[in-house]
Design a protein around this nucleic acid. Sequence first.
DNA 1: TCATTTTGTGGAAGCGTTTGCATTCGGCAT
DNA 2: ATGCCGAATGCAAACGCTTCCACAAAATGA
Lengths: 351, 351
Amino acid sequence: MERSARGAGIREVAARAGVSAATVSRALSGNGRVSEKTREKVQAAAGELGFVISYNASSLASGRSRNIGIVIPTVGRWYFSQVLEGAASALIEAGYDLTLYNTSDGPGHRESVLKEMLQRKRLDAVITVALRLTEEELEQLREVGKPIVAIGGPLPDTPTVRVDEFSISALATRHLISLGHTRIAHIGGGEELERDFRMGSTRQDGYRSAMAEAGLAVEPQWLRSSVFSVAGGFAAAKALLADPAAGVTGIFCAADEIAVGTILAARELGLRVPEDLSVIGIDGHELSAVFGLTTISQDPAGQGAAAVGAVLSLLRNQPVGGELLTGFYPTEFVVRSSTAVPPGFQGRTAP
Amino acid sequence: MERSARGAGIREVAARAGVSAATVSRALSGNGRVSEKTREKVQAAAGELGFVISYNASSLASGRSRNIGIVIPTVGRWYFSQVLEGAASALIEAGYDLTLYNTSDGPGHRESVLKEMLQRKRLDAVITVALRLTEEELEQLREVGKPIVAIGGPLPDTPTVRVDEFSISALATRHLISLGHTRIAHIGGGEELERDFRMGSTRQDGYRSAMAEAGLAVEPQWLRSSVFSVAGGFAAAKALLADPAAGVTGIFCAADEIAVGTILAARELGLRVPEDLSVIGIDGHELSAVFGLTTISQDPAGQGAAAVGAVLSLLRNQPVGGELLTGFYPTEFVVRSSTAVPPGFQGRTAP
DNA sequence: TCATTTTGTGGAAGCGTTTGCATTCGGCAT
DNA sequence: ATGCCGAATGCAAACGCTTCCACAAAATGA
């Protein structure tokens, strides 16, 4: 292997600075003590030689790799792309590399990713997004002894960044109820993520709870599901709204994209939003502003950054704030123009 | 460092299989010759011990790291998230890791990413997305001697996956012209990507060319720009359509998201699409189907996968097909219901 | 059957850092 | 002056693989 072409190594720097390789390592990494004068000499030499440390060698020797892995189902859907964006920015800021493992290619891949790729490769820590693991799988990961932080888990006994799916769903539903709606449908996420992530059904639970609490019945045909996309929401809403027996005046959608699809479907059927139909979503998607969608905003990029923050704490052996273990990531209720009192209703307006 | 907890090493496997470490390495990596019988013994031993090779050690020793880097401006926008998704899937399929560098955090970061992070860390190759480099920067990258493949470049003398921006823009414009439109506006991408990527203006050039070729004038107020989002398109289109002097009957949008925003703006202004206004986009975005948008679909996920294919060839020292150097990634013209003859026009219909 | 390849395997020297331990070198108190 | 002590530095042993080289064994050709 030609080494001449491959840039200077630490020994060349050492020679040029007139010190030993050990000192160069200490001067550049900040570990151990080095006099100010030597440090400067070393830095100068490194600069002149265009020396860049070999992460592989460094990792091998030190056991640290300044590289964290993120396991994410896909990067093509809005929520995940935002999480990734947030995490990537935070990591680059902290000087860490980010290795991406997307598990979208079938469940077989998921397993191999977890077992082989994370087992003890070159990661200092792992962030899992929307991943549900068996106790056994989790145990295997823990055995590796590297920090794990989850987003949208939940992984038991693991610091987790997550919103309070149940409560915000109940809140969204209650908002419709408080406006006077009684016939409220719910379009939830389909099986798509159910496999890894219990989100869909938790949101439905919140909806059911709020309905029950208000003494409202939930008719079976009010429960629909859709993939997390505008097209999916459009199709589901169209079926729902075309059903004369349903007769809903409000729809709580598990995601903004679904809600936007719902609004479009309503428009196409000649229904006005919010006069004839109220629609509320969850997410804070970019599109929600354009459509005047009332929603509960959840800032996924912030969640990604928060997870990175937790990981970095863990790596410094600072235990992460109990908040991540017990609390929820904050959400924001954004009232826009897609929700109003139901048609023909004369009661108080929304708070 | 406790080694007992850290899983078996290659020597343990060697001992268990009754061979030398060298043989284990050869058996597991497929380099060098090993008898079938030994290979099986080794694989069995490795399996029983749950042995997973240390990539750091392997990379250090061999100079190969089975890890490729992808430099991408952001992952939050549709196009980029799709490219990344496509690349990530292809890489995982090939058994490579993917390290993500997003350069969205200001130009300072971009430089450090390129010089420090790629210079000779732990990457076998680099895929750059929508990145424009100076000759000097490119030269620095080349010096490293690792394969580089670009998406949407163009980086001179670098295998590049890209669509023919100019031609498809002209094609889209011509489609409107052939329907009988003469007052055709263009909403292009803003400065957003212009910095790294000349895309915005290339699409405008295609538009101008088609207009000129048809002998049509382009009025200055017909040229608008927008960020690549529905909201951006909405705002830009609203301003354009509200301008009485403009009087356009067709709009060529540089992206589907902009086009969707345009359709929404038109609706809000009481204009029917396509009866009063024809709209055409570029992208093949998920939303385009929902809105019946005529568009030129460009399959960014496929582009990501194609770039990975090229990188893998390069790594095998198979020079990549000349197609990537000279040809264009295929696009598909999808005619839907957002384009029609202009209002009051009685001519032939579209081909 | 003997010389010549080919194949399979082991020994050991790296790969480029980090770090424990030993050593040196200046003070500084005595 | 004489010790002492901490700060600064060097030495050399890892870190866990890959691969060059040598060598033995098996296969091939004459």
